[in-house]
Design a protein around this nucleic acid. Structure first.
Length: 503
RNA sequence: GGGGGUGUAGCUCAGUCGGUAGAGCAACUGACUCUUAAUCAGUGGGUCCACGGUUCGAGCCCGUGCACCCCUACCA
């Protein structure tokens, strides 16, 4: 008892200072501090240590057995005090569970101390499993311990945390207060695990390549810049792992993948976060078709395993929702056929002037400078892509789209790639990779123009040692999670999305 | 970048015509030994996002700024 009193009276000056100076000083916090001291005086130290559990609450529920002694822990979410007994719910991240504190089942001190607890406090309890008259599985508490004092209030128990900004800035509160948010992230974790399990089982090896690179290559995007003090050198956060994974193909890895973060120095909106997670995969001696096989195997396998169904429900722009069926095989259609379907069989025979007229008639804005080559992609982006709701491989794309891929054998103006489109949005490109080291050198040199120092000479050298023919693909995993969890906001599938600093 | 919306108690939200700031949950006091959004009685709680302006008087009207949301544009 003496020791506990010391805890109260000899609280270090530093702690005293924190107690009084924290910006969040308010009456709630003051009350909680007072309760904390009262508890300490009764022998309950506010910030406890390890509390061995006989299981997580979800396990306790799964292996429920009346009369069994258990030890569990969790955060108090609700308290229903009915005088000489108290019901409360605790949450340990796995499940909520009701505990029952009955005056005649524990010491007077332990009972009185329990009444000093606040919502949000972490406690450990020991007791016996039983079922209430209303049929709820519960624990009757025989002993309990303070594990962590909460000095600040939880969000409202019924409505949860609604303010979108607060949900992103204080994700920890969102996770406590909104079960559907926690559930969505549990699914994300499961999706990641199943992707790895699927690929690992088929002989793909997961690798890690640099996120800080002297040149940021592999995609057309502005990189974030950083500085390496020891070398006094400018470094870039990667915009894609592609060029390193291809080095590994040269080095003899024949089936590799990487799951990791890309960083792009761009704006943010409901489908873009500046750092986002991708799966990039390469398979030596493969091509576009082997990548198609990976997609048609991986996506349904993950959906089935994690969600138990291949029928997704996605919100649409008009506030309705639609069903998306992930059962393979998926539709495959040539880019030009889609355009002809929309704009007429003779579309590609029109001259620029006629094409402009017809495009405008279809509701696409084009200016006088635009020729056929520029109008067609505009048609695709504005009119066609959004209509591809069910999973679709768009193949045989114009070379201008993907200059680094291999051309189609029967048409040098088209590249042998696909864009995998679901719900009207591109989810994933798949390529027959170009392994022609001389052509790559020419293209890279053209691309960097005057800035020859940006040429990734090391990569080009690697290619000249010979890269096997290969198929490659990249899936934006945040967007895959959006598809599989039926959400249309990327911030809802990223634990800590990027937000502006608040002063 | 352009247009629209939102910002009020710890949380969820009302706030009429410009005239003393409201409810539910949470909190505090009391009652209650099977409650589960516990119930019942009572009490306290506000930088109305920030700064400036109009006015005798501003949560409300005007201006500027900040953050978030939606639409749109840009970007892959």
């Amino acid at each position: 008892m003496i020791e506990e009193k010391r805890l109260v009276t000899e609280m270090s000056e530093k702690k005293e200072a924190v107690v009084s100076s924290t910006e969040q000083v308010n009456t709630y916090r003051a009350q909680r501090l007072e309760n904390m001291e009262k508890l300490a005086a009764l022998g309950y130290k506010p910030f406890g240590r390890a509390w061995p559990r006989s299981g997580r609450l979800t396990d306790i529920r799964a292996r429920f057995e009346e009369g069994k002694k258990v030890a569990v822990a969790g955060r108090l979410l609700t308290i229903r005090d009915i005088g000489k007994a108290v019901f409360a719910d605790i949450y340990d991240g796995s499940d909520r569970f009701q505990i029952f504190v009955k005056r005649d089942r524990l010491s007077e001190t332990a009972f009185q101390a329990f009444k000093l607890l606040d919502l949000g406090d972490h406690i450990g309890v020991e007791g016996e499993l039983f079922v209430t008259r209303r049929g709820e599985q519960s624990i009757i508490v025989e002993n309990w311990e303070m594990l962590s004092k909460a000095l600040l209030n939880l969000p409202e128990k019924w409505h949860g945390l609604q303010d979108t900004e607060e949900r992103y800035r204080k994700r920890y509160l969102d996770l406590i207060a909104n079960p559907e948010s926690r559930d969505r992230f549990n699914k994300r974790i499961a999706i990641m695990r199943e992707i790895r399990a699927y690929l690992d089982a088929r002989g793909y090896q997961e690798v890690e390549t640099p996120m800080m690179q002297p040149q940021a290559g592999g995609a057309a995007a502005r990189p974030f810049t950083t500085h390496y003090n020891a070398l006094d050198a400018t470094m870039f956060m990667r915009i894609a792992p592609e060029l390193y994974l291809k080095r590994l193909l040269v080095g003899g890895f024949d089936k590799v993948y990487e799951i990791g973060r890309n960083f792009r120095n761009e704006g943010l909106d409901r489908t873009h976060n500046p750092e986002f997670t991708v799966l990039e995969l390469y398979e030596a001696y493969g091509d576009r078709l082997s990548m198609k096989a990976v997609i048609e195997g991986l996506i349904p396998a993950v959906a089935q395993k994690v969600l138990g169904t291949l029928k997704m429900v996605m919100p649409t722009a008009d506030g309705e929702s639609e069903e998306i069926d992930l059962t393979p095989p998926y539709r495959e259609v040539a880019y030009k056929d889609l355009v002809r379907e929309k704009m007429g069989k003779d579309w590609f025979n029109l001259d620029d002037n006629e094409a402009r007229k017809r495009a405008e008639a279809a509701g696409v804005e084009v200016d006088d400078e635009m020729n056929h080559l520029l109008i067609t992609p505009e048609i695709y982006d504005k009119l066609i892509e959004k209509t591809l709701r069910q999973p679709t491989f768009v193949i045989r794309l114009p070379k201008q789209f993907v200059p680094l891929a291999k051309t189609c054998e029967d048409d040098p103006e088209l590249v042998d790639v696909f864009e995998f489109v679901v719900g009207g949005k591109e989810l994933c490109p798949g390529y027959t990779e170009n392994n022609d080291s001389l052509e790559q050198r020419i293209r890279f040199t053209e691309q960097v123009g005057e800035n020859q120092e940006r040429l990734d000479e090391d990569f080009l050298t690697a290619l000249e040692h010979g890269m096997p023919p290969a198929g490659g693909l990249g899936i934006g995993l945040d967007r895959l999670v959006m598809l599989l969890t039926g959400t249309d906001v990327i911030r809802d599938v990223i634990l800590f999305p990027q937000l502006k600093q608040r002063s």
